[in-house]
Write a protein that binds this DNA or RNA. Structure first.
Lengths: 210, 210
DNA sequence: CACGTGAGTGACTGGTCAGTAACTTTTCGC
DNA sequence: GCGAAAAGTTACTGACCAGTCACTCACGTG
């Protein structure tokens, strides 16, 4: 049997997913859908098509996986954010407006069962904050840093667009976004108040610029 | 030993709390602080100074207690809401402003350790929505009804104050409130964006009336 | 071929948790 | 004081769940 070394060097191997990555993927999906406390290691392992021993070879504990899950989600979120605002670089107002529209699209995702993406359950990190016990400073810190960065960015946009009280405007925009995620948990699709987010953001910006 | 039957009939007995009520009180406290899935029956029972048998004599299951907890919280919330807006009956704009200020006060509660009230962890019902599994329609319905009523009331205020797009304004106000509760989980006291809520609400109202 | 590594199997420990059974004690109205 | 109802005690079942142990199997590389 010939080895695969004959393949053109430019082509990476078909990237058969390693166990560790399969676990991460399954965990991300299950944690998001059912909550962290609602998913046991066995369920993750089964979904990933592996077994508990392989799990504990890759992760010291469930808590470590949770930490990685949260960091991953934050990472993904910043990519999504950057992609949403990129087309309007240099125009902070348009950036915020694009972001708000992106939030609506994100939140309403899953209302159409034909789309492959999982149904939205709001903010993975925010939801985790509900479940994380107070004593767990490690996980709490991840969420806190993440939410602080959201706040920092929105205040920065407000400052850049010349708002009179940039911190107030930034915080108000954050409340709208977070409220959109939070209410998504109770209102399916875009049937909730989140659809008002774009108009509300525009009104707030107008007030702070006028 | 004389019986208490000599008390004036108008005075209800000193209401020494029955086991059932003690369980409800303990559950409310523990569920709110640690989340529903984070509190086991034994913990509730111990906090209430009773035992598991008495628990299951009063409640068919933990889930039934949870349902009662959610209904109770909703009830308390409406009392709080009504009290906040009562001084400004007939002036919907002032009512909304008073409500917003009340939200800030509520959310920041617990930042001063000297006050007896428990530290705020946002909205009990909203947090429950994170933990409730999708299949549990009974609990989900309680939360949904509650959030729908919030929405209904805010839209009503918006209509009464003559807003151009009352539903949009009402929904926007709701996003601000919900965002305030949600972010409270990550930002202690009133260090979070919630402090911007009053100014934001005023700005939104002005826009929709102007 | 040998060897190391990554992955799989099944059984197990120790702990937690919802819920039950049988029985005793306390409380309270009459 | 008496009897019924409310509450307490102890012990238990069965399920679940995090984490471990000892061992086997499949590869790819030198």
């Amino acid at each position: 049997m010939t080895t695969k070394s004959a393949l053109p060097t430019g082509t990476p191997p078909p990237a058969k997913p390693r166990v560790r990555d399969r676990i991460r993927d399954s965990a991300a999906d299950l944690f998001y859908r059912h909550g962290i406390r609602g998913v046991c290691v066995d369920a993750i392992v089964e979904d990933a098509g592996t077994n508990k021993m392989s799990f504990y070879r890759s992760f010291p504990s469930k808590d470590d996986l949770v930490a990685e899950y949260l960091s991953d989600q934050a990472c993904e979120y910043w990519s999504w954010w950057d992609a949403a605002v990129a087309p309007h670089a240099g125009d902070p107002r348009r950036q915020v407006e694009a972001l708000m529209q992106a939030v609506v699209d994100l939140v309403k995702s899953g209302s159409k069962p034909d789309c492959g993406c999982r149904s939205s359950r709001g903010c993975a990190l925010g939801n985790a904050a509900v479940e994380i016990p107070e004593e767990n400073e490690k996980l709490g810190a991840i969420v806190h840093e993440y939410k602080t960065e959201i706040r920092r960015r929105l205040r920065k946009y407000a400052r850049e667009m010349g708002a009179r009280e940039p911190d107030v405007l930034g915080d108000a925009l954050m409340l709208l976004i977070e409220g959109g995620y939070y209410t998504r948990l109770t209102f399916p699709g875009n049937s909730g108040p989140v659809t008002a987010i774009a108009k509300a953001a525009r009104a707030l910006i107008d007030t702070h610029l006028g």
